[in-house]
Nucleic acid binder design. Sequence first.
DNA 1: GTCTATAAGAAGATAGAC
DNA 2: GTCTATCTTCTTATAGAC
Lengths: 205, 205
Amino acid sequence: MDTKQRILDEALTLFSEKGFANVFVTDIAEKVGIKAPSLYKHYKSKQAIFDAIIDEMNHRFEHQAQALSINGTDPAADAEIYKNMDEDHLVRLGIDLFSYYLHDSYTRRFRKMLTLEQFKDKELAKVYTGQYFDMPLTYQGMLLGLIVAQGLLASDNVPIMTLHFYAPIYMLLTVCDREPEREPEALKLLEEHIRQFDKLYGRNF
Amino acid sequence: MDTKQRILDEALTLFSEKGFANVFVTDIAEKVGIKAPSLYKHYKSKQAIFDAIIDEMNHRFEHQAQALSINGTDPAADAEIYKNMDEDHLVRLGIDLFSYYLHDSYTRRFRKMLTLEQFKDKELAKVYTGQYFDMPLTYQGMLLGLIVAQGLLASDNVPIMTLHFYAPIYMLLTVCDREPEREPEALKLLEEHIRQFDKLYGRNF
DNA sequence: GTCTATAAGAAGATAGAC
DNA sequence: GTCTATCTTCTTATAGAC
């Protein structure tokens, strides 16, 4: 990895732990193994480093869905996976989703950084809500819609059904971001949540 | 309100909007209508102001439940309220809860400040999780337990049922903290969520 | 308790040699 | 591209008069 990229990587780590304002260019340079002035040969300011991280994220998220072992951009192509979706498969899907978001290094650091900077301006607020509310609800809504279409679950309001599936996952994720030692407890609640979800939507309507 | 208290009030507003590190003692003093050095007659440092806000919160939250028009500390005493709990009453409860958390000035500012400072140290992380995860789940779990006991809803896993009730409320709250203009949309989803919740838990088991 | 003046130090960024 | 030296500005905090 070249220096320019290593700067982004170390800056992201520091920003996600301490917040933009509490990280000094000296800290970033030290982690990279150079002196602060050298850093300005790669980026014209501390803010430019932050902006470059946001830009890089926009490129990476295009491939995110693939990392979840789902096609991501073509839900119809994912339908095959959900042909025989039973409770255990749904639990596996939810835990994989949760574990990926929680443990993938880049995803976790970016989410934590955005958590700390979300009120800075309207654009960052939109990036956060887009990534952790609109996009998951849209995509998971398509998947659950497919499962409903196949008669494996039943709902006359798939968007709300999706909110019921995703909101507990999101909340448990924020808990583990703050207190990683609560992950076992979160995983237990997550599994119970999905089994209950499956029972609730598997029996009604 | 005396100067000492006004300092806390203005500091909380600024911290919740910009984060601790991006607020300067000059900014706080200006809002209060004094010069920065005068501020040091009331608090020995900027950090001491932050600490005083956290301390004040610990006192205020004792009375929080009462502001929600429920007893709060004695769920058994609240049982009366839920004697005739139908879907519309449950919707009202959820929307009141949501609206209180979102619009109560002190609650909103404190939550936003804590959001920005939650990774600073273990103690702040615990305050956040305690206030917005453990406490709501514990208390709402007691209320839902009462409703289940009265046969108005049914569940063999009240903690997970509580997670299903609260997690969407929490997630929608975080959306509105970032993008207040999305409140109408959030309220619509919130009402649909609770009506669906009532149907799901009203028909099973 | 509030002010003006100022100390003390931190932090972002630049200049110019190598 | 990296370094040392340095500039400039900002920020917290104190001193001491009123």
